[in-house]
């Protein structure tokens, strides 16, 4: 047994223990904290699986934004905790659930042990065309050139989720301010931290975005960091979220996917297919799409965490 495998086994056991604890612990708030820890451990697994791009996404999304979202929800729902404990299912239900879960696990495990060898891979194909896209990071090339359609649909899904969240507002708060509001002392430690951290965080976010063309990173990871910085500044009481009916907000939210669609369909004219880039212009077009998507993603991710509007818009 090599040292690397020993590390992997230790990591696996830690993750399984964390997942089991997250499921089993009685207190919901503790479960949320467990889930955040679990997400951070998963980040280490992505590094071990040679997927640093995924690791960055998991750390920013799985640990960071999802954690903030769930902590907020758990704190608000805390008063319902004791009531729902009485709903615990019967022993029979739990036994059946355990049997079903074990069966699913066993089926998946059999599949894992019988995966084809040698493994099918698209890596050579991705590498062969990398030069024509002008980007050095194959994952970015997949996201914005080979399978740009997926990325477009993803951006639209994020937007649709945001529309869904906004549509859950009360009539009286329709188009108003999301609930995220600060109670922090404007001269307190959090405000100080936000003042120091936010400028650096913005630079780090843009750096991660920019370097994604050639190294691990990219717009999703960068946008998550920028969204987190915005939420930090708001949480520290140094800024306010805009009401969701603001025109500039909605324009920026739609601009990213719109630019993506326009450039994609322009491929019909300038190149031979939808989402094909004309020769020699791939890199600038990819950059244009990414720059247009950035504000969309930053705003959408932050507003997804902030939740449905809760207060009236200004008359």
């Amino acid at each position: 047994m090599t040292l690397a495998l020993a590390v992997d086994i230790g990591l696996t056991l830690l993750i399984l223990a964390m997942a089991a604890w997250t499921i089993a612990v009685r207190d919901t708030f503790a479960s949320v904290i467990g889930f955040v820890t679990y997400g951070l451990l998963l980040t280490l697994v992505w590094v071990r699986l040679a997927a640093p791009d995924v690791a960055l996404t998991e750390a920013a999304m799985g640990g960071g934004l999802t954690g903030a979202l769930l902590i907020g929800a758990a704190a608000r729902l805390r008063s319902t905790e004791s009531a729902s404990r009485t709903e615990r299912p019967s022993v029979l239900t739990r036994t059946l659930a355990a049997v079903l879960s074990a069966a699913v696990t066993a089926a998946l495990a059999i599949c894992v042990l019988n995966l084809p060898d040698p493994a099918p891979t698209l890596a050579p194909a991705a590498a062969a065309q990398l030069g024509s896209t002008g980007v050095g990071n194959p994952v970015t090339a997949v996201l914005l050139a080979y399978r740009a359609m997926d990325t477009l649909l993803e951006a639209i899904v994020v937007l649709l989720a945001l529309v869904g969240v906004w549509s859950l507002a009360h009539d009286r708060a329709w188009g108003g301010y999301p609930q995220l509001r600060s109670h922090a002392d404007p001269d307190g430690i959090l405000a100080y931290f936000a003042r120091v951290m936010a400028p650096v965080g913005i630079i780090v976010g843009i750096y991660i975005f920019w370097i994604g063309a050639d190294f691990p990173g990219g717009k999703f990871q960068g946008a998550t960091i920028l969204a987190a910085m915005w939420l930090l500044v708001i949480g520290a009481g140094l800024a306010h979220l805009p009401p969701v009916s603001q025109t500039w907000l909605r324009v920026l939210l739609v601009a990213g996917p719109l630019v993506f669609i326009v450039i994609g369909f322009a491929g019909l004219v300038t190149a031979e297919a939808v989402f094909a880039y004309p020769n020699g212009y791939a890199k600038p077009l990819i950059l244009a799409i990414e720059i247009a998507l950035m504000p969309t993603l930053v705003l959408a991710l932050a507003l997804l965490v902030a939740g449905a509007p809760q207060r009236m818009p200004p008359q």
Binding site: A75, R76, R78, D185, L190
Partner: peptide
């Protein structure tokens, strides 16, 4: 204190 609550919703203050 609601210091820790700054990133939580306003009515997120729990009973405890």
């Amino acid at each position: 204190s609601n210091t820790v609550d700054t990133l939580l919703p306003p009515n997120g203050n729990t009973v405890e």
